[in-house]
Computed example of a mutant assay.
Amino acid sequence: MADDKSGRDKQAHDEERRQREREIAAELERGDEVEPPVDASTLAYFETELESVEFPATGAEIVSAVGDREIESVVETYTIADLLPDAPAESFDSPAAVGTRVQRPTVATAMKRVVEAVARLPNAETNRSQREAYERTFRALADVDGDDDDEAIDAVADWIVDRVAEKERVPGSRDVRRQAAKVCRENGYEIRDDEWLGV
């Protein structure tokens, strides 16, 4: 493809189309998940509060603009600063993408810890697909460990943060899935080979 304006526009358009396809596929996969702990009307109201933010926006920009806003879950009340990483490493394409992240507060807080831990390393970062894989792993743990206060999510987030601090590198998504499966099996949960965690 020629390196001119139309070629770059086509590449950008193709990437946007692929991203939309990934988001649709992810939504379809989540169709069987348990109901998120944040009410849909709460999320819809929160998304309207994000109108002051220009998207795409980093977690740091969103926290700066609306970090003190509160989201109520069925268990607890969180501020947006509790749920989104105050780091420029992760960006969100739309208010709906932010809403998707905060609808499961335990997953959001785990992702916040991971992104902020990686941001502290001088030359490390996670790419979008790696963060999506981490988030999918945390969501799978939430579905498996739904009745146990999401202890498995905390255990895997601790493992990732410890690895980042000790080895000064970011663990691969497959390593994270293996660790998540190990935590589940140690706690008596069966993980089938055809599941996301069954690596």
Rank of each mutant, 00 (worst) to 15 (best):
R22I: 07
A44I: 06
R120G: 06
I80C: 04
A97Y: 00
D148I: 05
E27K: 04
R185H: 01
A40Y: 07
R163E: 02
A119H: 01
N123G: 09
R163D: 03
K112D: 00
E54H: 04
D175N: 12
A181Y: 01
A142D: 03
R8A: 07
V53W: 13
R113M: 00
V114S: 12
E135H: 04
N127D: 12
L121S: 10
L83C: 08
E151Y: 03
A26D: 08
I24F: 07
H13P: 06
V170C: 07
E21W: 11
R104M: 03
V38Q: 12
I62M: 09
R169L: 12
A152K: 09
I153Q: 02
D194G: 09
L84V: 14
E47F: 10
H13F: 06
V114A: 13
E195Y: 02
E35K: 15
E166S: 11
V161Q: 00
D150E: 13
N123D: 14
A142T: 08
A108S: 04
E186S: 10
A155E: 02
E116F: 00
L83Y: 05
F138V: 02
G146P: 01
P37T: 07
E72Y: 02
Y189P: 04
V74W: 00
A40G: 09
K167N: 12
I62C: 10
S173F: 07
A81Q: 01
A96Y: 03
V34R: 13
V115L: 00
G99C: 03
P105F: 01
Q19T: 13
E51H: 14
F55A: 08
A26Q: 11
P122V: 08
E116I: 00
D3Y: 13
R163T: 11
E190L: 15
A110T: 02
R131P: 02
